[in-house]
């Protein structure tokens, strides 16, 4: 595990020194949080549109931010693969497990920091607009977001392993667009009904947002929280397993 932590340290430094990381993983979600709050304040109360209320918006934006963690995981892995840096590490006593853990751990840490910053800004906004987010809800929401973070990191690892550094970000952009759309981050997917709701329910993104919003509302009902969270946990386990398998297989192929 010492080697995995060494690789974790290297990856955290590389990510923290990439200005694009700050723009996409932090700046963009925070800007969206502020813009959508302004939109929310501009919508007349009689429209009864609650999706941009800060207690619904903040968990959605937190999930949105995690999608950029996926993008940076894919970029990190595919860039390492395109050069010979990984090849150098393959010639050391490092194992596939060390390398995989070294990619996952820093991304999980960064996603937790990202969520903490997002909720801090959301809390400040909530105080300004006079709605006051529940601090207990924020903490439970942050814990609820761990499986979805792992799920997106899993997506990123798979894309980074299977595609090069030019294709992987493009594919991640598609997932970000689909995830934002079917996750109901920018509109009330639950309220749309019909085919749209059916499609949304077929994607894990819908359950990420739903469980996070329920956690923020301290609503731990089976339909609103437990089942969506169980689905996200299941997806996270499947994607993590698939990504570890894909990485090990790719390493064996590279060394074939």
């Amino acid at each position: 595990m010492k080697r995995a932590f060494a690789f974790t340290g290297r990856n955290i430094r590389e990510l923290l020194r990439d200005p694009l990381g700050y723009i996409f993983c932090l700046g963009f979600p925070l800007i969206m949080l502020i813009i959508m709050t302004i939109v929310d304040r501009s919508i007349p109360p009689k429209a009864n549109m609650t999706v941009f209320h800060i207690e619904n918006l903040a968990p959605g934006v937190a999930v949105f931010g995690q999608m950029f963690i996926m993008l940076f995981t894919a970029l990190n892995v595919s860039t390492d693969r395109s050069g010979t840096f990984l090849m150098r590490l393959y010639a050391t006593p490092m194992t596939a497990s060390d390398l995989t853990a070294g990619y996952i751990i820093p991304m999980l840490i960064i996603s937790m920091v990202q969520a903490a910053i997002t909720f801090t800004v959301a809390f400040i906004i909530s105080v300004i607009v006079g709605s006051g987010l529940n601090i207990g809800g924020i903490f439970i929401c942050m814990i609820t977001l761990i499986p979805s973070a792992l799920m997106f990191i899993g997506f990123g690892l798979i894309f980074g392993v299977l595609f090069n550094e030019k294709s992987a970000p493009g594919l991640c952009s598609i997932i970000i667009s689909l995830g934002s759309f079917f996750g109901g981050i920018w509109f009330d997917a639950q309220g749309t009904g019909g085919v749209m709701l059916k499609i949304s329910k077929c994607t894990p993104f819908f359950y990420c947002t739903k469980s996070a919003r329920a956690a923020m509302a301290l609503d731990f009902g089976a339909d609103s929280f437990m089942i969506p969270l169980a689905i996200v946990v299941l997806c996270a386990v499947v994607l993590m397993s698939l990504s570890c398998f894909a990485f090990s297989k790719k390493m064996r192929t590279d060394l074939g």
């Binding site: 010492k2 060494a6 290297r10 430094r13 010979t84 090849m87 150098r88 010639a91």
Partner: peptide, 28 residues
Amino acid sequence: IGISPQDTAVAERLTVRENLLFMCRVYG
């Protein structure tokens, strides 16, 4: 063994010292 591949294979955003310290930790 030690290998210096055809491409330089260094961590680009790490300093020279950090690259070397990283490899030290890889070797335990």
